[in-house]
Design a binder for these strands. Structure first.
Length: 573
RNA sequence: GCGCUCGUAGCUCAAUCGGAUAGAGCAACGGCCUUCUAAGCCGUAGGUUACAGGUUCGAUUCCUGUCGAGCGCGCCA
């Protein structure tokens, strides 16, 4: 619908350029947008404000002149005016607005999808929680956020793949292996003390028990010497167990990945050395000594020469280490090899969703990727702020170290997948989020998901009533005369339906999933208002059919939006 | 000390890549169920958008500075 007005305005601008009112050549961009205030029409443009300098006229005068150039044969706009400092407001005809109802019903599940991103291949990497323990609520927020961004990009025409990067190499994995070994020995009656840095939590005991059940005392004679690697079978057993939990937990909140990418394969396939080789070719590698860190200096700090990447050349604050002083690859080296691999797979855009605590890491990865691909904006990182878990006003502390963290599973078990997803998404990713368990458990309006789902269920209830009265539900298929829909509540409800595709495009462009739940809440609110003051099941058959069609379209859009967010759309509650 | 993300009603948050009179929910107060689901609706009240400048037709939005919060700052991941 916006397209109609955009075409109209650009036609007028061209005409004014050709008759000399406006300068020829390139002009600054103007916008056609939805006014905040409905009395300002369906669309407004700031064209006269932006272009007035190029016509040497006052904005309002130019606006008048533009309106005079409005083609006489168009049928969509029935009223327009110059307003405020020089905005032009367009009011769409009521018939054109009502036409949205059959349009939406005909498109069904596909209403809202667009071709905006067609031809664009996007890889979105998210969660990527370490396989050293269950996911906590912070991971859950990143998971839901990444999944929603992926869904929104997909519905706006992008080709999207979801990927999980498994950090199955490095020290932490060895630490996990030894932690399991300690608990395993403990199960056989050995007295042990968990060394500093190990994972003491209960889940490690569970893994140890499972290991004992599978292998008996097979590992009992292995010496607990943390200066060497633990048995690889034990490490793999622990990681496989944990990844099984993670996959299961993700599945319960409706998240499925296309690819699971193992860090080990990077080492095994020589991709890290190959990537360092690429950087060497570009003369971006050197042996150097890093400056001591700012702030409080670690006790054991000492300057050592290492292999470094010149990331300062690409805007990073420091050069970054690719190899440790013992010659092994750093996590960073593996990570740029991973991102280089993604780039070589031919995507047009890479999106990573990270926790905000990794914010300081963004520049160096982008720097490396720019150096390797000569592309500037290939990698985009969305930072998701942390979740403060609250129970009855008291903050719940979360830490992997002391083992008191609350897992995502516990929260999902308590409040359900729908509420978890919806609450996580009803916040912009940039803001930290207080998640109150008591509040989320209470089935009150504090859970906005109920509000939206209830609107959807109510519409189904009306249809059930309809059938009890022996009337045919096809009355609401949008085929009848809709001109009896004249109430303000009806027109603004239809207008709201019409903004759904634009809202989705905005959410996609800005990577802002929270716009979807806000839209749904607004739509549900408009519906509840209408429902409370007007009967749908009227005796007048024409009016009945029109109103049924209207709420049927509302039902369709609510269902589309909820489904997009991975939240269920129940038919009764 | 430096970097990143923020600062909007009592609380939790919105505000369409700079737009018109900054909006919702919760909490408070007052109304609406013999009629399609009251998990709902209607009304009242609540603001110097942290602060001070700058950019322009116009700033919650962009720039600079101050204050405050969270996160990060050697070879960990």
């Amino acid at each position: 619908m916006r397209q109609i007005i955009e075409n109209l305005v650009s036609g007028i601008v061209q005409q004014l350029q050709s008759d000399g009112t406006l300068q020829a050549g390139d002009l600054p961009e103007y916008k056609v947008e939805r006014p905040r205030d409905e009395t300002h029409g369906d669309f407004a443009t700031n064209a006269a404000l932006v272009l007035s300098r190029f016509a040497k006229m006052k904005p309002r005068d130019l606006a008048q002149k533009m309106l005079a150039a409005l083609p006489a044969n168009q049928k969509e706009v029935d009223r327009w005016e110059v307003a405020g400092p020089g905005f032009i407001n367009f009011h769409i005809t009521s018939d054109r607005i009502r036409q949205l109802i059959p349009d939406i019903l005909q498109m069904g599940q596909s209403y809202g999808s667009s071709k905006m991103g067609s031809g664009k291949r996007v890889l979105i990497e998210f969660v990527s929680a370490n396989p050293t323990g269950p996911m906590h609520v912070g991971h859950g927020r990143g998971a839901v956020m990444g999944d929603a961004i992926a869904s929104i990009l997909k519905v706006t025409g992008h080709t999207v793949e979801r990927e999980y990067y498994i950090n199955d190499a490095g020290n932490q994995v060895g630490v996990l292996g030894w932690s399991v070994m300690m608990r395993y020995h403990e199960l056989f009656g050995c007295s042990i003390t968990m060394p500093e840095g190990c994972y003491p939590a209960q889940y490690v005991v569970e893994i140890a028990k499972a290991l004992r059940d599978q292998d008996g005392n097979r590992w009992l004679n292995v010496e607990l010497d943390m200066s060497v690697s633990p048995p690889i079978e034990v490490v793999d057993f622990a990681m496989d167990t944990i990844m099984g939990w993670i996959r299961g937990e993700l599945a319960t909140i409706n998240i499925l990945f296309d690819n699971w990418f193992s860090e080990r394969t990077l080492h095994a396939d020589g991709k890290i050395e190959a990537t360092i080789g690429e950087l060497t070719k570009k003369d971006l590698i050197f042996e150097g000594v890093l400056a001591p860190p700012k702030g409080k200096l670690p006790d054991d700090w000492e300057a050592r020469p290492q292999l470094l990447f010149k990331s300062t050349k690409y805007g990073d604050a420091e050069d970054r280490a690719l190899k440790k002083s013992d010659g092994s690859a750093t996590y960073f080296a593996a990570d740029i090899a991973y991102h280089f691999d993604k780039a070589q797979r031919g995507y047009d855009l890479l999106i990573d969703v990270w926790g905000a605590d990794h914010g300081g890491y963004v520049k160096r990865v982008q720097a490396a990727l720019t150096a390797l691909t000569d592309k500037n904006n290939l990698l985009e990182v969305e930072l998701v702020q942390m979740v403060n878990l609250v129970r009855g006003g008291e903050p719940v502390k979360m830490s992997k170290r002391d083992g008191t963290f609350v897992t995502l599973k516990e929260v999902v078990d308590e409040v359900g997948s729908d509420a978890v997803r919806f609450i996580f998404l009803t916040r912009s990713g940039g803001a930290s989020l207080d998640f109150d368990l008591e509040l989320a458990v209470s089935k009150s309006n504090d859970n906005p998901v109920y509000y939206v789902q209830y609107a959807h269920a109510r519409i189904h209830a009306v249809y059930r009533q309809l059938q009890e009265k022996g009337l045919d539900k096809s009355l609401g298929d949008g085929g009848g005369d809709l001109s009896c829909l004249t109430l303000d509540a009806e027109m603004s409800l239809i207008r709201a339906l019409g903004t759904y595709p634009e809202m989705l495009e905005g959410a996609a462009i800005n990577r802002e999933p929270h716009r979807v739940p806000y839209f749904l809440i607004d739509l549900a609110s408009a519906f509840h208002t209408y429902y409370n003051s007007h009967r749908i099941l009227e005796d007048d058959k024409v009016l009945l059919a029109a109103r049924l069609s209207l709420i049927n379209a509302v039902r369709q859009v609510l269902a589309n939006g909820l489904t997009l967010l991975g939240v269920s759309a129940p038919e009764r509650m």
